[in-house]
Simulated assay, not measured.
Amino acid sequence: MPLFCATLVVRDAVTKLDALAIVALAADAVVTDAGTMRPRVVLPGGAWVEVEIPKFGEPPPLALDVYSELGDDHAKIAALALLTRLEERTAWTVKPDFVL
């Protein structure tokens, strides 16, 4: 089954573990698959978020990849809903990395 992805870019410095916890808190969800190579936060409606951090000490941004099996529009809508929650509940600077 194909996966569709809509990426949100966060310009703040944060670890992957902290980012997952913050996303889960903002989305009223939990981190699943913790301790694995692909921990994620499942969002309402079936999309999920995985956090990609810069490699080798590079500065931010970090990427919040919102995945969906239901289609590109579903991934984008879920990403925008998450962006709204993050703006309401955090001090993060978040921008979509996709065409609206």
Rank of each mutant, 00 (worst) to 15 (best):
W48Y: 15
V66H: 05
A47P: 00
W48P: 04
K55Y: 09
E52D: 12
A29T: 00
R11S: 14
V66W: 07
L20K: 04
L8I: 04
V9N: 06
M37H: 11
L17D: 15
M1S: 14
D18H: 10
D28F: 12
A19R: 13
M37A: 11
V66L: 08
A21F: 04
I53C: 00
L64P: 04
L70Q: 15
A47D: 04
A19V: 03
A75F: 01
E52H: 12
F98M: 04
L82W: 06
E58T: 07
T15K: 09
V49W: 12
E50N: 05
L25K: 15
P96E: 06
A27W: 01
A26P: 01
L86F: 02
W48E: 06
A75T: 02
E88W: 13
L86N: 00
D33I: 01
F4H: 13
V31Y: 05
V94W: 01
V41T: 02
T15S: 12
V31S: 07
G45N: 01
C5W: 12
T36M: 02
P39L: 04
A34I: 01
K95A: 10
T15F: 02
V42S: 10
L17S: 11
A79T: 03
M1N: 13
T36S: 03
C5D: 10
G57T: 02
E87T: 09
F98H: 04
G57I: 01
G46Y: 08
G46F: 12
L3A: 10
T84R: 11
T32Q: 13
D73R: 13
K76H: 11
L43N: 03
D65W: 09
A13E: 14
M1G: 14
P61H: 08
G71Q: 06
T93G: 12
M37I: 07
K95E: 13
V49A: 12
I53T: 08
E52F: 08
P44W: 10
A24W: 04
